[in-house]
């Protein structure tokens, strides 16, 4: 028993590599403000991938509809800002409410059936919400999208496309990502998180141990939805636009790609995968804007063939 506790405590500790990882990100943003926009996009994609990791990596629930929550979060921030509530922090926090609610209400759909059913159900929810946003064009701007502005963060740090804006935006996204990764880390290593692993490994056996899989799936899906919603709100606020493509299938598919590139199940995989994906896309598409997808595809095949988590092992964040 003491061995188990000691093991759990050891897992809880922050490693040197982990701390270095965050410091490197801060240093990167400050040192290269010209690429802050790109870093910001990667950080937000990383948070979005983290939200998927909570359900896919920790709990083994597949989803091709994470974009539903990403979109709802983005439009929540955009609609609030348009209604005069310009504070970026408020927008990010407000995005949690509707996304968690939709996550909670749709989670029961995931309890029955196979993985294939879950892929279809989650995809369907994203399609429906996307169409709803298209239909409610009085609120969402429909296919034209919604342009808006947000106030400076804490009344001082302007975020957006001009001057210091991209740098501040990237630092803001980094802070939010750090806070949520901290929460996810605590969550994953708590008894609740460990019971999720039990559900992932063998649902029947977990049930026999007295772990109610259904409630745990509903709870983690709700949390994951809120994480995705925050990521969406961050993207909307830092680019100051929300458009219907936020709900589109390619967003859900790309985020799964990112998670697979980085490796699922240990929380940093999504962040690293998103960074690799967006960096490779930027470099390759500057050379061949038409065919960069080919190289990403090739990279994915290579990763899956030669060990999908090798990328992450290289930086030794995995234990």
């Amino acid at each position: 028993m003491t061995d188990v506790l000691a093991h759990l405590r050891r897992r809880e500790r922050w490693g040197v590599a982990e701390i270095a990882f965050w410091l490197a990100l801060v240093a990167g943003i400050v040192a290269f403000p010209a690429r802050a926009g790109l870093v910001n996009e990667a950080l937000i994609a990383g948070l979005f991938a983290l939200s998927l990791d909570l359900i896919l990596g920790l709990t083994g629930i597949v989803s091709l509809g994470q974009a539903a929550f990403f979109g709802v979060g983005a439009y929540t921030a955009a609609i609030l800002a348009n209604a005069g509530y310009h504070d970026p922090l408020l927008g990010v926090l407000a995005a949690i409410v509707p996304t968690a609610l939709i996550g909670f209400l749709t989670a029961p759909l995931l309890l029955r059936g196979s993985d294939l059913t879950r892929l279809m159900v989650t995809m369907g929810v994203a399609l429906m919400l996307g169409e709803l946003a298209n239909r409610e064009d009085g609120l969402t701007g429909g296919a034209d999208g919604l342009n808006f502005t947000v106030a400076p963060l804490f009344g001082r740090f302007a975020i957006g496309s001009f001057g210091e804006g991209p740098r501040n935006a990237a630092l803001f996204s980094l802070a939010v990502l750090f806070a949520l990764l901290f929460v996810a880390r605590r969550l994953a290593r708590s008894p609740f998180g460990i019971s999720l692993t039990a559900v992932r490994e063998n649902r029947l056996r977990a049930g026999a141990l007295g772990i109610s899989a259904a409630w745990r799936i509903v709870a983690i899906y709700t949390i994951s939805a809120a994480f995705a919603g925050v990521a969406g709100a961050l993207l909307a606020e830092t680019t100051q636009i929300a458009s219907l493509d936020l709900f589109e299938f390619h967003r859900s598919a790309n985020v799964m790609l990112m998670l697979i590139i980085g490796g699922a199940g240990y929380l940093y995989g999504g962040v690293i995968g998103a960074g690799v994906f967006i960096l490779v896309r930027d470099v390759v598409s500057a050379e061949t804007p038409e065919y960069w997808e080919f190289w990403i595809g090739l990279m994915l095949v290579a990763l899956v063939l030669f060990g999908r988590e090798r990328l992450a092992n290289l930086v030794r964040l995995r234990r």
Binding site: A34, L38, N40, E41, S161, Q240, D245, S285, W292
Partner: peptide, 22 residues
């Protein structure tokens, strides 16, 4: 300089900002 925005508005905006600033 041809840039691919994949049809996503947030990417279009970032690419425009980078094209001007960088």
């Amino acid at each position: 300089l041809v840039k691919d925005d994949t049809g996503a508005a947030d990417v279009t905006k970032r690419l425009a900002q980078e094209a001007i600033a960088n």
